[in-house]
């Protein structure tokens, strides 16, 4: 069970991004968090595994307070919280298997991590999970050779390798085409019930939120303004959450454009490097 109470996050002296959030998530439930860009969804998720430091408030997972943890204790808490990212955040130059096994980093020793000598049980579990989501045949392929949907499956398996007690998914479908994103949502839904995991999903696409989750939480300006069953999420709730900001449906096509953009930036990078090197080469003077 995840209990968040009076969670506040403020960056510097700006207006708070999260203004005293309260949320309780029972075990074995899938919760969608909807809201416009900048509503604080991503910040809230990252406060839970402390990739972002909360300014004040309390977050308890199965009774353990997470907010004050430091060092090794924090890392032990983190390994019980799986996270799936919008941009997949795979390590492109490593193989799919290495990416999946990276989910065990919180458990194995540094020597095991660097020499890739993982316990047999971990390898077995990795193969089973990869078979479950249909990517086992790619085990020794490099992660950047996979398609978007396959990459996100790697991301999901990596999170599940942690044997999490809670799964966080930050816009897991926003970088995918509509068909693939449906598949990923279905996967998350069924994995949650198979493993009886509480799952928190940040999502832009309200239609998907209604189809694949059991509970919808709406955020606006860092405050919770809706909490209920998908059936209760009607036109009024939609207007309250997105009203005057942006139409939620437009955002469905939006992410692909941004993904292309980031791809392009990546493609540009090596060229700049080359030029830089050429200049420095001259430093031999």
């Amino acid at each position: 069970m995840l209990e968040i109470s009076k969670l506040v996050k403020r960056y510097g002296h700006d207006e708070a991004v999260l203004k005293g959030l309260d949320l309780v998530v029972e075990d074995n439930s899938v919760v969608a968090i909807v809201g416009a860009s900048g509503a604080g969804k991503s910040t809230m998720l990252r406060c839970i595994n402390r990739l972002v430091e909360p300014s004040s408030g309390s977050i308890r997972l199965n009774g353990n307070e997470l907010v004050n943890l430091r060092g090794a204790a924090l890392r032990r808490a983190r390994r019980k919280i799986g996270m799936v990212f919008q941009g997949f955040n795979l390590i492109d130059r490593l193989t799919v298997m290495e990416n999946v096994l990276a989910g065990r980093l919180g458990y194995v020793s540094l020597y095991q991590a660097i020499s890739r000598r993982y316990p047999q049980a971990d390898i077995e579990r990795a193969f089973q999970l990869m078979e479950r989501v249909g990517i086992a045949q790619y085990a020794n392929k490099r992660a950047d050779e996979l398609s978007g949907g396959e990459r996100q499956r790697v991301g999901v398996v990596r999170a599940l390798m942690q044997e999490p007690e809670l799964l966080l998914a930050d816009e897991p479908t926003a970088s995918l085409d509509p068909r693939t994103s449906e598949q990923i949502m279905m996967l998350l839904q069924s994995l949650a019930s198979e493993l009886s995991l509480p799952v928190l999903i940040n999502i832009h696409n309200v239609a998907q939120a209604k189809t694949y989750t059991e509970r919808i939480v709406g955020l606006r300006h860092g405050k919770m303004i809706f909490d209920g069953k998908p059936a209760e999420f009607d036109k009024d709730a939609l207007d309250a959450i997105y009203g005057g900001i942006e139409a939620p449906d437009e955002t469905v096509s939006d992410p692909q454009a941004t993904e292309q953009q980031t791809d392009k930036q990546h493609a540009d990078k090596p060229r700049q490097r080359d030029k830089g090197l050429d200049e420095v080469k001259h430093d031999q003077a």
Binding site: R78, R79, L94, L105, G106
Partner: peptide
Amino acid sequence: PVEAMQATGASKAKVIAYAVVP
């Protein structure tokens, strides 16, 4: 990827070995 490795509970050395070195 650094963020993803931190989220798995990896220590700093492991984050470097997996997310920075490659």
